[in-house]
Design a protein around this nucleic acid. Structure first.
Length: 868
RNA sequence: AGGCACGUAGCUCAGUGGGAGAGCACUACCUUGACGCGGUAGGGGUCGCCGGUUCAAUCCCGGCCGUGCCUACCA
């Protein structure tokens, strides 16, 4: 095969991508047994339209491990899924098309989403199904972009194993999971205050909550005490005054002890509320006495639950103040009319607006003492939300977690974490759980609950007796299909049924990715072969969601761990050390960087980064990768060129012809590399393998190649030449395969020239280098020959550089002094040293003598007056 | 506030109980018989600070400082 002079990475990479796809070299073979299989539980990226280099970085790291395993001969099951459920998708669709879903509107088959509607036009309301269609359309476009990126990045995915979390198979799996957990008593429904995002108007789970430091202010508000006197409440949420159900202070707080049992009266609303001791009141904070509202925070919820006091819900599902009938329970008041007047001022306002207004009212009323005192404090947000969470009493489905903490910690310990300290994050999360998993979302684009409720003759749904779908009929859409035993005309009729209107948390589906790939729901035989998976690669911020929930599900359904190993990638940081996905301004897309620097160079950069370690985006590392690629190309060209140019039959040289002392010593080094790189990969330490390989490769080029260059193309076709060529070929075959996971394109290109039969045998299906390949090469008598030869050659080079001569400049006379041991090792390889240094063998003297501290030889090279 | 991790050359990062390293950047030189998308040589670091263990500490232990993340913190 013709060996090109220059390497055109973009051309070669495009060519090999097509070839690999055509040859299906990454296909999983369903006929091979479990023990030969390596199953990857690949992260299904959230199809949200953002494509940045951070994605490429972490997915490339998985691919390194996968490619190593493939070269060990494993049958790889490496799927790629898309997570197109959930709020990120809905939000994008809402913004792109400027539409809002409505539960009331009927489906309009003519309607088409259009991104061209200008920002000035009103937001359009569309039916649930039209909205879902728009979501699917956006996802499909994004999925194509992602797939193109993954292909460009050289991921060795078997695309036939792909899935989308909204496809029928995934919906069936998620619904089956729900039914199974229901049967096992691990899910329950309850009507209680749930953490609520007002913009999305849905409940969310603890795992999706994050704290943000926000400015706020203490407002000191005067409450009357019914027997006379008053107290001062400090609150950051004056707008919840109407929701106040009690006033509490610490039981040991002497300032307030005498008030316990009395009744306070709120300003504006004149509501009588008990003054009670409560352990959670901190005497140091605010005024030491606080109002309990329904609901200001999690503490309020917990305290209310145990108090038996009424629920005065003020904040509605869209984050505005709802109507209230002051004077009627639960809104007891001493002055109904005044309370109603105050409430009218707030009703319909958002929380923020209501706060501003009530502060004015309290000021006018004389109940606000002094000016608000600004503070910053942590406020809980839905991680993708923009308004602080509220607590809204609603009916939600939960998966039991709190009673299983110990078991879940135990499951975590059965999994090998890479790096190990990442398990601590899992442990911290499990230990800190304070709620069960809320899995229902009051949204649209997601997997519906396979549940209906019977409606009694009075028209009220009976939530205690849910009607569950039959397993064989999954997936179902309860909003479109009737439950077993009912007809469609009975929907929402007395004596009929009502569908559960909610969809599941996106994690309720993505926590099943191992079972989705294994076809747990439909194919027990395949499940047996693919579950548990071997590897879960992911990033650290979703340990508490994806890793955690996946462990939960595998344990609840089958008492199993979902995978044996979990690898945690670090983040890519921009030059300001911010996470790439959060970078502001212009960020180069992954595709741009791959084209500019070549995929191999970008993968090299990924491979350099250790698991779990955040990495700054540094183009100098791309450059290093590019340089390595070029060097590999050129060195290979030289080695294989020896075979091409030769009149002699060097194509048949074999390892058993390796006899020269220098070559034997070099093969010994190469064997050390194979052991080191393989050991590193076995520990999932691809970066260690790359580092070892790269170091050895540069040594191979700069030192070994230079030493044997002349011998390898010596005029006479002798044993020395055969030994050199055989060693070069062994080394090249070894390096190419050691680099193949990192640099899949250039290694394949080179492999195809001679070893791969023009690409018919892909390097990616060759076997990983092993010691047996060089077992017929005897151990060197002088193991130090290579090191000694290099030391002398370096000193000759040094002399020439200092004399500002080229490296081929002839050496007229060479004197080497050293001890007997090193001398013997050197002399075994002396002829190679002399030819590499262009020194006259007749004028070379090696003798007994002292060497400088820490070195073996003292070398004196006298350069010729003139070049040859 | 607790936990985990990190702090090594100007930058990005390896590393080990005994010699401080790589790439980039920088300096000088080499016009190359695989490679100028190259090569050779070189300058540059009290390995965050303070203690301890040890014959010996950048590495092990303790404390401190700084950075990042995880968890907690809404009156």
């Amino acid at each position: 095969m013709e060996i090109p002079e220059k390497y055109d990475a973009n051309e070669a990479e495009a060519r090999w991508r097509e070839r690999w796809e055509a040859d299906q070299i990454y296909a999983w073979d369903p006929s091979r047994p479990r023990e030969e299989t390596f199953v990857v539980d690949t992260p299904p990226p959230t199809v949200s339209g953002e494509l940045h280099i951070g994605h490429v970085f972490s997915y490339a790291q998985q691919d390194l491990i996968v490619r190593y395993q493939r070269m060990l001969g494993r049958n790889i099951a490496y799927p790629m899924g898309w997570d197109d459920n959930g709020l990120p998708t809905e939000r994008r669709v809402q913004n792109v098309f400027r539409i809002r879903p409505s539960r009331e509107l009927p489906y309009d088959p003519e309607w088409q989403p259009s991104a061209d509607r200008g920002p000035k036009e009103a937001v359009e309301e569309v039916s649930r199904l039209n909205f879902i269609e728009a979501c699917e359309r956006v996802c499909e476009e994004d999925e194509q972009a992602f797939e193109a990126l993954w292909r460009q990045a050289g991921l060795s995915v078997d695309w036939k194993l792909g899935y989308r979390t909204i496809d029928a198979h995934c919906r069936r799996t998620a619904q089956l999971s729900f039914l199974d957990l229901h049967e096992r008593g691990q899910v329950y429904q309850t009507l209680s205050p749930a953490m609520w995002d007002a913009d999305f108007a849905t409940a969310i789970a603890q795992a999706e909550v994050e704290d943000r430091e926000k400015p706020g202010a203490y407002h000191d508000i005067r409450f009357a005490i019914e027997d006379g006197g008053e107290l001062l409440i400090a609150t950051t949420r004056p707008e919840l005054l109407g929701a106040c159900i009690a006033v509490v202070a610490h039981p040991d707080d002497e300032r307030y002890q005498k008030l316990f049992g009395k009744t306070a009266v709120t300003p504006l609303f004149h509501a009588p509320v008990p003054i009670l001791p409560a352990a959670h009141a901190d005497p140091e904070k605010g005024t030491g006495i606080l109002m309990v509202c329904t609901f200001g925070d999690a503490m309020d919820v917990e305290w209310w639950r145990n108090s038996g006091l009424p629920l005065r819900q003020l904040i509605g599902p869209v984050g505005r103040i709802v109507p209230a009938h002051w004077g009627e329970p639960p809104f007891q008041t001493r002055e109904p009319e005044a309370a109603a007047r105050a409430h009218a001022e707030l009703e319909g306002r958002t929380v923020k607006q209501a706060q501003r207004r009530i502060v004015e009212l309290l000021g006018d009323d004389g109940s606000l003492v002094g000016e608000p005192r600004p503070i910053t404090h942590p406020v809980k947000f839905y991680e993708r939300g923009e308004r602080p969470l509220e607590y809204v009493p609603t009916r939600q489905w939960f998966v039991k977690l709190l009673e299983h903490k110990d078991a879940l910690l135990e499951q975590g310990r059965k999994i090998t974490w890479h790096p190990p300290h990442m398990r601590t994050r899992y442990d911290n999360w499990v230990e800190g759980l304070n709620q069960d998993w809320c899995i229902s979302r009051q949204r649209f684009a997601g997997v519906p609950f396979p549940v209906w409720y019977p409606i009694d003759e009075a028209g009220a749904p009976d939530f205690e007796r849910p009607l569950l779908a039959e397993r064989e009929r999954l997936p179902v859409d309860p909003l479109a299909e009737p439950p077993p035993g009912y007809g469609p005309e009975q929907r929402d009729q007395p004596g009929g049924f009502a569908a559960d209107p909610d969809v599941m948390d996106t994690w309720a589906t993505s926590s099943l990715t191992p079972q989705i790939t294994s076809h747990w729901a439909t194919d027990p035989g395949r499940h047996e072969r693919l579950f548990p998976a071997d590897l879960r690669p992911q990033s650290h911020e979703i340990i508490r969601t994806w890793a955690f929930y996946t462990i939960v599900k595998a344990w609840m359904h089958e008492g199993q761990i979902p995978w044996h190993h979990i690898t945690i990638s670090g983040w890519i940081l921009d030059p300001e050390r911010k996470k790439m996905s959060k970078s502001k301004g212009k960020v180069m897309t992954g595709s741009e960087l791959l084209s500019e620097h070549s995929t191999d160079a970008i993968r090299y950069w990924s491979g350099r980064a250790r698991l779990g370690v955040d990495t700054v985006l540094d183009p100098s590392v791309f450059k290093q990768g590019r340089r390595l690629t070029t060097k590999l190309f050129n060195a290979s060209r030289f080695v294989l060129g020896q075979l091409e140019d030769s009149g002699a039959d060097l194509g048949a040289v074999a390892t058993n012809e390796i006899r020269e002392p220098l070559d034997l010593a070099y093969v010994a080094r190469l064997r050390g590399l194979v052991e080191r790189a393989s050991g590193a990969f076995e520990r999932f330490d691809y970066a260690g393998a790359l580092q070892a390989t790269e170091e050895h490769f540069w040594e191979f080029c700069d030192d070994y190649l230079e030493l044997v260059k002349l011998r390898s193309y010596a005029e006479q076709d002798g044993a020395g030449r055969h030994s050199a060529v055989a060693t070069l070929l062994l080394a090249l075959r070894t390096f190419l395969r050691l680099f193949a996971p990192f640099l899949p394109f250039v290694t394949e290109e080179i492999w195809s020239w001679r070893f791969g039969d023009g690409g018919a045998r892909s390097i990616h299906r060759e076997s990983w280098p092993c010691l047996a390949e060089s077992d017929d090469v005897p151990a060197p008598a002088q193991a130090e020959s290579f090191a000694c030869a290099m030391e002398v050659l370096r000193k000759i080079r040094q002399t020439k550089t200092q004399a500002k001569r080229s490296l081929r400049w002839p050496v007229e006379r060479l004197e080497v002094r050293g001890e007997a041991g090193p001398r013997a090792a050197l002399e075994a390889a002396l002829s190679d040293v002399l030819s590499a240094g262009n020194a006259d063998p007749e004028a070379c003297k090696v003798a007994q003598g002292a060497a400088p501290e820490g070195e073996r030889f003292s070398v004196c090279a006298t350069l010729s007056e003139q070049a040859d």
